[in-house]
Simulated assay, not measured.
Amino acid sequence: MSHDATTAAPTRTPKLGRAVRIGLAVAVLATIAGMSVRAYDYHRVAKWTDAQITPSVQVVTPENSGGVHGLTLPGHLDAWISAPIHARVSGYLKSWSRDIGSQVNAGQSLAEIDTPELDQQFEQAKANLARAQANARLAVLTDKRWKNLLTSNSVSKQEADEKAGEAEAAQANVLAAQADVDRIAALEAFKHIAAPFAGTVTARNTDIGDLISANSDSTPALFTVSDTSRMRLYVQVPQGYADAIKQDMSVQLDVPDHPGEQFTGRLIGNSGAVSQTTGSLLAQFEVDNPKGDLLPGAYAEVHIPMTGNSQTLTVPATTLIFRAQGPQVAVVGADNKVALRDVHIAMDLGDHLRIDKGLQPGDRVINHPSDSLAQGDLVQVARADARQE
């Protein structure tokens, strides 16, 4: 019995050892698998971290600036002729016959002023003229009589000369009185306010019964008449583009109240000097306006043609870097490292720049560079499909 018990124990030991070895093997495999997964995850995270550390940039390629390009500048329109009409005589407005928007001819009446004081002055001046003429006639007759008396030695030569002088003075008084009558008659004509030329009444600042004060700087114009068959277009051209203003050049202009329609202006002159206040050259253009579509005082966008230089390159203005070194752009090299280049701006077109120094055709220029971008930084170029996403 005891012998059987001792012989059964060794048969269970190998089974227990095999289970332990299997367990250890499974544990080792699990450990290796776990370490492999962790190593894979580590490398993947490290790769993702490196990708995040390396900034992604968008690049653009400079374009050749040859050919004809346009520069858009603001401008304003004025009537070819515009005359504010003030009163030359004082009184009260008796009536007006033309309102704003009315078409008038040269010399056509616009209004009439009631001038009772001036009328009385006119009557008085005519009376003074009549008195002067009567005095002159009497003085002439007296002069003749005294000359006849002088021939018979009835009067002295001194007395005769005095009468002759009085006759001449009387004639001069007639001329003075006549001039006064003519002056007031001219003022009487100003009671009727007339259009100085054919055009459109663009302003009326008076009404019946208004007190009219003549020759007062503080008094607004009663009417404004403008000739709008042609228009004057004024454009302030920055000094950097002043050489684009050439004789006999033409420009295209747009106005907000006529979208999609363009008008043509012809250069008729410029100021010939750069304003110290605005730093610009004032250019004046003539624009035909037969239908009256353009209005005085209107804003216009003026497109000025400009001939480009074949040696200049055009890049977006968003590529420019402003630092203490001056204007720069960041170019991505073949090794994806950043090179900062000093550039010279030949022309600023607002949203685009023309560069004549510092860039080469085919350069990859970083668009919207960050402020921290430095020389030699490693970057990665964003794919076009990634930017679209």
Rank of each mutant, 00 (worst) to 15 (best):
T11D: 11
T13A: 09
R21L: 14
T31N: 02
A33T: 10
V37I: 14
A39Q: 11
D41W: 04
Q52N: 11
V59N: 02
S65V: 01
G66I: 00
G66H: 10
V68S: 09
S82D: 07
A83V: 12
I85N: 09
K94P: 00
K94S: 11
K94V: 00
W96N: 05
G107R: 10
L118R: 10
L118N: 10
A125K: 06
N128V: 00
R131C: 01
A134E: 13
A134C: 06
L138S: 12
R145M: 09
T151E: 15
T151A: 15
N153E: 15
A164G: 05
E166V: 03
E166T: 07
A172V: 10
A179G: 09
A179P: 03
L187A: 02
A189E: 14
H192I: 10
D207F: 11
D207Y: 11
D217N: 12
L222R: 09
T228Y: 06
D243S: 15
S250V: 10
D257T: 15
D257I: 08
G260Q: 07
E261I: 11
E261R: 14
L267E: 03
S271K: 08
T278D: 09
E286P: 04
D288Y: 03
N289V: 02
P296S: 08
P296I: 01
Y299W: 09
I304C: 04
P305N: 07
T312G: 14
V315F: 09
P327I: 02
Q328A: 02
N336A: 12
D348I: 03
L353A: 12
I355T: 08
D363N: 15
N367E: 13
Q375R: 05
D377W: 00
A386F: 09
